[in-house]
């Protein structure tokens, strides 16, 4: 049985790894995946290892939690750090794995 949920993706400077791990967990993510990322953007090429590599966080959460996460990211990080974040709709099986039994 597939369930519709939100996939939050955040690409950030590596130096914020711990802060984003905490932010996701505090806002209802039961888990997340981190991959190393490389790229270029409006703030210029990243300083690579001197600031740590870029990281891409992915977490599947309820749509309410996704809004909460984006709001928190916007408030704390967009102004001063190289961070982008977006939400996409995904369909998953085992929905309770991501949002808990009572919300399925």
């Amino acid at each position: 049985m597939k369930k519709k949920l939100s996939l939050v993706t955040i690409v950030t400077e590596g130096i914020l790894k711990e802060q984003f791990s905490e932010l996701l967990q505090e806002n209802g993510a039961s888990g997340f995946t981190i991959t190393r990322a490389e790229g270029q953007g409006s703030r210029g090429v990243r300083a690579r290892d001197w600031e740590g590599p870029n990281l891409r966080f992915e977490a599947i959460v309820s749509s309410a939690a996704a809004d909460q996460i984006l709001a928190a990211v916007e408030k704390k990080y967009f102004e001063s750090y190289s961070v982008i974040a977006w939400v996409s709709n995904v369909e998953v099986v085992r929905g309770e794995k991501f949002v808990g039994e009572e919300n399925v």
Partner: peptide
Amino acid sequence: PAAVRLALPKASP
């Protein structure tokens, strides 16, 4: 740089 980036995010690298 690592310490400054965290403590003074508004300073320009």
